[in-house]
Design a protein around this nucleic acid. Structure first.
Length: 437
RNA sequence: GGAGGAUUCGCCUAGUGGCCUAGGGCGCACGCUUGGAAAGCGUGUUGGGGGAAACUCCUCAGGGGUUCGAAUCCCCUAUCCUCCGCCA
């Protein structure tokens, strides 16, 4: 959720942010009204409750005196007590009513507040999915024709290597499922170990988080809003399968206050990711590019708000470093306002070159969620100025399936084998090439 | 899944309906003391809402209830511990 003070002080900024996202700016005005009501209800309740507290205390004193009173004084003390008790029921009734009004006003305001997406970073490009800004182009796609190679896609290559089994994935689990077998399975471990090594070398704490979470964790990270149709829910237990380790890593410190001196806190999580892919229609139906489940190594930082922008650059830097080491051509894009999730103020994607499609496709994504998630999850920091929300950021180091797609296709060779990039070899027992069975 | 027990301000703990709607210890911070330190003494030390401020309200795991009044009584839920059953 956003800062109510910002909403009061500069509602235009929030309205503009909503507009750029293509979301409803009128929520801002309804929330301002609801907030006004909430504060009024709060004030009148506090006044009545104060009255009741004072009276209660007085009654307590009188009862104490009655107990200790000598026989001759008992009648007098009793009379005073009776006088004080007169009207207490009526007061209690008014307190109850005021409290009910307060709770109702609070519920209304909170509901509206939770509808607002994060305030967009003014530097983020405005527009929809196609209005991204190209930040950087790294590497050059190979000229396969010049090499005399007819490009094969990852399904062909992967099946020849005995690395990917899509048919049996469908047999057992349905469409958009797969098995990684043999060298495919080993490839996952190699990619994961390589990623974890990079992260640990940069001060990240490795974490294996739960992939099944309570509604509050899902809600707090902002995935139950417009993204909710893509989330798997286990009805019988009211639990959710996470779509990314971001969820359990963000909720990890929920309801906690961290010392500002302990920031930034960097965690790198390895977890399965489950996505319903509702609304993705018939897109990317071939292969393992878009699947209902995959494993991923995700970076997550709890940061001082003033350092969030720099941390965002660092996360992107580590993502680039990882893809550089895989020797895969890619581009970096600054994602446009309409394509940001509810929590992100700004987002950069790395898109790897996919030879069989002759275009760049998303393989990683890093978001600066500023204080938005932290407010929802009640994660704060304490410094000399007191206690306030901190900033959270996340970034993919490696999403296994899409990286395997890019790896197999970009490093394919004329004889059907696949060259292993140098950085990955130590994690594959020194293998330099993957050969068909 | 069954049976018990627990949950209070960072930690330990007092508190079984009002006369403290939360007391004490440890730790921490500041001050006094000292040549300096320790000890000692004093003060402060959960978080949140409203208010320009004075101040005030909420917060004893969470939610409901009883009552003029609940940390305290009743109900539900969560988490942890012990035992039993099942199990990777």
């Amino acid at each position: 959720m956003i800062d109510l003070k910002l909403l009061r002080d500069d509602p235009d900024r929030v309205r503009e942010s909503q507009r750029r996202r293509g979301e409803d700016p009128s929520v801002v005005d309804r929330l301002l009204d609801a907030d006004e009501l909430r504060r009024a209800a709060e004030t009148s309740f506090a006044a009545l409750r104060g009255e009741q507290n004072a009276l209660s205390k007085h009654i307590g004193h009188l009862q104490g005196r009655l107990k200790k009173a000598a026989d001759g004084e008992k009648e007098q003390a009793q009379a005073e007590l009776d006088a004080a008790m007169a009207g207490t029921s009526d007061l209690a009734e008014r307190v109850r009513a005021a409290d009910a009004r307060r709770v109702a006003a609070e519920t209304d305001a909170t509901a509206l507040l939770s509808q607002l997406s994060n305030v967009i970073d003014p530097h983020a490009p405005v527009g929809g999915e196609d209005d991204f800004v190209l930040v950087e182009l790294v590497g050059t796609p190979r000229d396969f024709a010049a090499e005399g190679i007819t490009v094969r896609d990852h399904v062909e290559i992967g099946e020849a290597l005995g690395a990917i089994d899509i048919e049996r994935g469908a047999k057992v689990s349905g469409s958009r499922f797969y098995y990684l077998t043999g060298i495919g399975a080993l490839l996952e471990f190699a990619l994961v170990n390589h990623a974890i090594a990079l992260a640990c070398g940069n001060g990240f704490t490795p974490v294996i988080p739960p992939a099944l979470v309570k509604p509050s964790a899902m809600e707090g990270t902002g995935f139950l809003g417009q993204a909710s149709e893509n989330v798997y829910r286990l009805e019988a237990d009211d639990m959710y399968l996470v779509g990314t380790a971001e969820v359990p890593l963000a909720a990890y410190h929920s309801d906690e206050i961290l010392e500002a001196t302990s920031l930034p806190r960097r965690y790198v999580g390895y977890s399965p990711c489950f996505r319903r892919e509702a609304g993705s229609g018939g897109r990317d139906t071939r292969g393992i590019f878009r699947v209902h489940w995959f494993d991923k190594v995700e970076m997550f930082t709890y940061s001082h708000p003033d350092d969030a922008e720099n941390e965002h650059a660092r996360l992107l830097g580590w993502e680039k470093q990882y893809f550089d080491s895989l020797e895969i051509p890619y581009r970096v894009i600054d994602v446009a306002s309409g394509d940001l999730g509810a929590s992100a103020a700004r987002k950069f994607d790395i898109e790897a070159w996919v030879p069989s499609q002759e275009r760049y496709r998303e393989v990683t994504s890093t978001s600066n969620c500023t204080e938005f998630q932290a407010r929802r999850l009640r994660i704060r920091m304490r410094d000399e100025d007191g206690v306030r929300p901190l900033a959270t950021l996340n970034g993919t180091l490696v999403a296994i399936t899409r990286t395997i797609v890019a790896l197999l296709e970009n490093h394919q060779q004329a004889d059907g084998s696949v060259r292993v990039p140098v950085a990955l070899r130590p994690y594959l027992g020194g293998r330099e090439v993957l050969t068909p069975l």
